[in-house]
Structures are given as C-alpha cells and as structure tokens.
Design a protein around this nucleic acid. Structure first.
Lengths: 263, 263
DNA sequence: CGTAAAATTGATCTGTCTCAACGTGGGTGG
DNA sequence: CCACCCACGTTGAGACAGATCAATTTTACG
C-alpha cells in the first residue's frame, strides 16, 4: 500500500515537486485506495457525484454509450490522472468510468478534495491536470474530425507514449498498453476491422508495433510527422521556457481571422 | 454599460441566483468590459495566459488550426459562458478564441478571478459552467465520431437552441445564430459543401430552417429524435429534485452555508 | 454599383463501413 | 488431458457517406 502511494506521489510530481508538508494530506487521503478489476465500473452514468478518483495504477477510461450500443471513449485516465474536482458541481455523472486494466484508484469525497485543495502545490497539480485533460479532449476532436485512420492511430500512440513517459512507464521506446483493438476503435471512432487493417499498415511501415497490448515505437520522429503530432497540447514541459510552437501558427495559414482590436 | 452588466448577471443566474452582496464584485470586475468586432481574436494560441473571459454578449469560439489550414472549432462560447478559471495553470494558450459576431466580454486577470472565487455563489457558477463545457466537449466528440451529417447538424442545432434558451435568447422557437456554413463545417468536421446540402435536406424535412443566421426549429420533438439529442449533458435542469450526497462547496470554500442545489 | 464573401449545384472519387467468414489462443469443465 | 468455447484478431468483397474539384448564383456592404 505504501508502495502504491509513493508511486502515486511520483506520478503527480511530473507537474510540480510536492513539498514534504503536502505529502501528509495526500497520504492520508490515499489510505482510501480502492482496487478495481479489469472491466469494473468505477462510477456509472447517472450516479450521484459523491466521489472522484485519482488513478494510482492501471488504465481507466471515460465513455458514453449510444442507444444503438456503440461506445465512445472520451478519455483515458493513466496513472497520476485525476478527475476534475469541480465535477462535484454537477448532480449526476453524465458518463461512466471503467477500468481497462486492473486499476488502483484513490477515492475522494468532496470533503477530502477540499482538504487537498488547501495545499497550494497539490491544488495546482489538480488544476493543471484538469485543464490538460480538457486540452487533450480538444485534440481528440481534431483527431477524429480531421485525420485519416492512419494518422489518428499514429497520433493516439504518440500521445499515450508521451503521457506514459511522463509518469515513468516507458522503457526502451516501449510500454504496456492494455487496450484491445475494439477499445481503440471506440476511442478513435473507427471500426475494429479498420483499426486492425491500419495497425498492420503501421507495422508494415515500421513506425509502430502494437501487439499483445505492447506498444513499441520504432521511429518516433517519423511517427510524429505522419500524425501531425505536436506535444505542446500536453503541457508537459515543466516551467522551463521551451520554445513556443510559433512555427505552427504564425506561418500564415489562410483562414486566420484578422485581429485588429483584440489584445 | 450598466445595461451589459445587468444582462450578464441575468445570464449567469441560469445556474444559480446571485445574492445581492455578490453582485458588487462582479460589477466591479465587469467594468473592464471589452468590445470585439466580428472576427477579432480574443486571445491567440501561444499567447501567455494572462487573462480569461466571460462572454457578456455575442458568440465566440475556440478553435485550432491544422498545418494545412483546416480549422477545428472546439467550442462555442455563448453569452454567460466563462473560460475555465484554471486555465491560469497553463503557461500558454494551446488554442485561440475569436469572435463570430460582435462580442462584449469581461476580461479577468488572475487576481480578479481570485476575488470572484471568494464569492461562494459566483464561484459555484464558474465551476458549474466549466464542467458543463467539458461535458459538451465530450458530446461533440460523440457527435463527430458517430453521427451522420444530418444527425450532427440536427444535434448541434438542438444544443445551441437549448443553450440560447437558457440565457433567454430564444423567441418563438427561433434565435439568432451568427454562423456561416463554413463555420458550421469547421465545427462538425464536414465540408461546407456538405453542410449546405444537409441544411437543405433539413429544410425540406421541415425540422429546422437555418437561413440568414436565423435558426427556426419547426419540430423540436422530431429534431431531437433524429439527432439522438438528450439534453442531460447540458445539466440545465435547474437542479430541482436531485440531491447530491455531499456538496463539495457546502462546507469547504469560504464559509457560508448553502448547497449547490437548494437555496 | 462593384466586389468579395457566402451559398448553391453537379460530377466524380475515395476512405471507411458493412457484412461475412475464418483463425487463434487461453481458459474451463468434463 | 482433451474438447469446447469465447473473446480477440485477421481477411475479403462490395456499398455508401462525405470529400473533392469546379462552376455559378446570391447576398452583403463599402
């Protein structure tokens, strides 16, 4: 258990180092750690919002079901990821969260969250995590809306690789990714049939291999290029002034609205 | 100016009634109201996050550009909508916001936000607005990923109609919607050509008419049905009836007894 | 009025879906 | 230990929603 917590602390710290005095409240909260088996539901659509989660280990996802049974996965929650604390502003969950692998999660009540948010660094970490997840959601919309299956898959792999790297779950350009092709399909709004074909195309092109829940990136540069992946939206550079991605935006794309008054 | 503010107050109140003592801080903040012309950029991708906005009047949108010039609109900001206060946790904007119509917006610095968040009701309103926007983002992903052009357009119209209704901008099943077909296309990840054809199909089917930036819903029931629109994700039901187990806000943040719902 | 942005229409092309099999591996019960 | 099963992955052929390319018309507005 102590092990889980120290791992969790490390994973939260990729945002900002946690000072010693803030560990205590977290460790206290983390004593309510809960284990879920693969496929368990952490919280269900329609349920009252009486708790939120911090993923300590394993992968979970948010998803919504359509009346016809199709499923849209709208987010992956990796170790160190946190539900938005303001979810408590809602009466009921409008989507479900389930475990894609065995998951260890810290369950937080509204009161517990209040405690944690009194800690300045912890509070910043929670906030940072929440806005980054929103940023990821925007990127996913872009992904599904504007990229081909090949690009989408590449982009997803780039993202997951980066995020797992940030929490120290990558070794030798490879990581465990407990996803089936159907789950990837539900994420990217593709058919599992098409995911399969695209996966093989990726393999053939020597960019990535995803087999037996094992992701290996063979050529990250090339993969990023075909995916149009720019990691800026993950906001992972810690405080250090990394070059702003000016090249991307200022290069005179045709439809930029003319700005005269603003700023 | 006073007029703008009182309108704004009304629009924020569709979440929760603002007590008199909380109006003052808002009105103070709102003195920094800024006017943007159609197409002006409120804040640009890559810019330091030094301010956020409350839309008082008009419609703005968040968008991202792809290197090839295509654009994805990831959110509409209608009157009463607020940028997530925690955006300040990020160093730089990862997307832009621009005005789709003439816009009046309240500009808030981090300090101003802190002031406003000391007000319990105002703080809840800001939080509620932020999480609802996340919920909308999830629904949009579903929309783009799983629905046909006909359904997507229908769904978008249902949503915008509901949201405008909530801020009292609907009259006789109709509302102003200052969007071009290109902008709708950039929102739904379709071609403007296809948006055009679908719009005409909607007209022919007597469900909705969208012409000259004027939206008329002729048969809301049928429209919702074909769109698969369930307004739950907008969390607009004025909280009647639903009691959360514990309120995040009731005890913690600045004193004051109250819960999210009751009042 | 003149000009550009926005809307409309038509013809053709293509990425992805659909449907329908078949293969494969790991677990379970007899 | 074998036989079966079921989730998962793989493969093929045909269908279709929406993209693309290319005009043309209408509207807004300085």
């Amino acid at each position: 258990m102590t092990d889980s917590i120290s791992r969790l602390v490390r994973r939260l710290e990729h945002c900002e180092k946690l000072p010693p005095e803030e560990r205590n409240p977290l460790e206290l909260a983390a004593s309510s750690i809960v284990r879920f088996r693969q496929r368990d539901t952490l919280i269900k659509q329609g349920a009252p919002v009486d708790r939120i989660f911090i993923i300590a280990d394993g992968i979970a996802c948010r998803y919504t079901l359509l009346p016809d049974g199709r499923r849209q996965i709208s987010a992956f929650m990796l170790p160190g990821d946190i539900c938005d604390t303001r979810t408590f502003a809602l009466a009921r969950m409008d989507h479900s969260i389930c475990a894609l692998s065995p998951v260890e999660a810290v369950q937080l009540s509204a009161a517990a969250v209040r405690k944690l948010e009194e800690q300045p660094v912890l509070s910043r970490t929670l906030a940072w995590n929440a806005v980054v997840q929103q940023s990821i959601a925007r990127e996913w919309l872009l992904n599904v809306g504007h990229r081909t299956a090949f690009e989408r898959l590449s982009h997803l792999f780039c993202e997951l690789f980066e995020r797992l790297l940030a929490v120290d779950l990558v070794r030798d350009n490879a990581c465990e990714l407990p996803l089936t092709q159907v789950e990837i399909a539900d994420t990217l709004a593709l058919t599992s049939v098409h995911v399969n074909r695209t996966l093989m195309e990726l393999r053939r092109s020597k960019l990535v291999t995803f087999q037996n829940r094992h992701l290996v990136i063979h050529d990250q540069g090339a993969l990023r290029r075909v995916a149009g992946f720019d990691p800026a939206y993950l906001h992972l550079e810690s405080t250090a002034g990394v070059e702003p991605a000016v090249s991307y935006f200022s290069a005179g794309a045709p439809r930029v609205p003319s700005n005269v008054l603003g700023q």
